[in-house]
């Protein structure tokens, strides 16, 4: 059992891969935004890679452990401390009942993950413990954790002193520029060659109004093909309007002139075009970007997107620990 002393900015229970198979009922997958760091945190404490843990966004929580536990912190560097002493990240630690774990503001990256041996044991909803706050389901009462709440922990035995090999960790450097992979489609025929050229050649700036639903980008104006400008009236007036259709998770949704990357808590359908889609293997970079960071897109094929995701999955195994 863990008591929330301070909740942090928005800390929530998530599991991986999240709430899968309910897109047709209007539920997004949710789950950890950076599932690479998340899975490694679980492996460190002896859990299954998908067991429920905590996702801390921008500013981490302060938590008091009411029982002895084995924990690990991965992802963004929020300068974690245990009873005031530095707690090494990417490593499993034994904590005693009464000890306090405190995370601060993110110094590198944006999202940190806390795993506890045994996993967080909140009730699953639709097969997942992931929090989807908009509908108030999953996690602790359906929302981010609050001060004074108690977080239940399952039974588990972890081994302290395990570390993630440095080359198996996502690289979170000081650079505020990210190379993000993107696959053309499903509506790549609605924007013209100049727009495709601009998409992969200019700097896109991440707006502050971005969260687990969508990542808004600032950049140049989009230009369109005849497909978008000369279409049946039921598609709507603006070139970016289309008859409602399903949205892939990760899609670059063109809302008027503003691209919004729809991420883990996004709506399943809507009436705007999606010229590109960010594949799941690049999500960890989105998750660790901060407002005003720069995105540079690289166009890859579907086959390359599959290989990208597999290359990350290969890091999320016990072979990455020492």
């Amino acid at each position: 059992m863990i008591t929330v002393v301070k909740p942090g900015l928005e800390t929530s229970v998530q599991d991986w891969p999240g709430r899968i198979g309910f897109w047709e009922q209007g539920f997004p997958p949710s789950g950890p935004f950076d599932s690479w760091s998340f899975r490694l945190a679980n492996l460190l404490v002896g859990n299954q890679p998908g067991d429920a843990g905590l996702e801390c966004q921008f500013m981490g929580p302060t938590l008091r452990f009411e029982r002895d536990a084995v924990i690990a912190v991965t992802g963004a560097d929020m300068a974690p401390t245990l009873d005031g002493g530095v707690l090494e990240m990417w490593r499993s630690h034994a904590v005693k009942a009464g000890q306090v774990l405190a995370l601060g503001p993110a110094r590198k990256g944006a999202r940190a993950y806390i795993a506890v041996a045994g996993g967080i044991d909140t009730p699953p909803v639709l097969g997942s413990r992931s929090t989807f706050h908009m509908a108030g389901i999953g996690g602790l009462d359906g929302h981010a954790i609050k001060a004074g709440q108690t977080i239940p922990v399952g039974k588990g035995k972890g081994t302290p002193g395990r570390r993630v090999k440095p080359d198996a960790r996502p690289a979170l450097g000081d650079s505020r520029t990210w190379q993000i992979e993107a696959v053309a489609g499903p509506n790549d025929d609605w924007v013209d060659e100049a727009a495709h050229e601009r998409f992969v050649s200019v700097d896109w700036k991440l707006q502050a109004r971005s969260n687990r639903t969508g990542y808004r980008l600032d950049g140049p104006e989009w230009t369109f093909t005849e497909r978008a400008t000369n279409k049946r009236p039921e598609h709507g007036e603006h070139p970016s309007n289309v008859l409602d259709h399903g949205y892939p998770v990760g899609t670059v949704n063109l809302c008027g002139q503003t691209p919004i990357i729809l991420v883990v808590d996004a709506p399943s359908t809507g009436g705007f075009i999606n010229p590109y889609t960010v594949p799941s293997g690049a999500f960890w970079k989105l998750a660790q970007a901060k407002p005003n960071d720069i995105f540079r897109f690289t166009r890859i094929s579907v086959a390359e997107a599959h290989e990208l995701r597999r290359s990350i999955d290969r890091h999320c195994t016990l072979d990455s620990l020492e």
Partner: peptide, 11 residues
């Protein structure tokens, strides 16, 4: 048409 590495849209 593809939508990233996990989706296709059938029109």
């Amino acid at each position: 048409r593809p939508g990233g590495d996990r989706f296709v849209l059938v029109q």
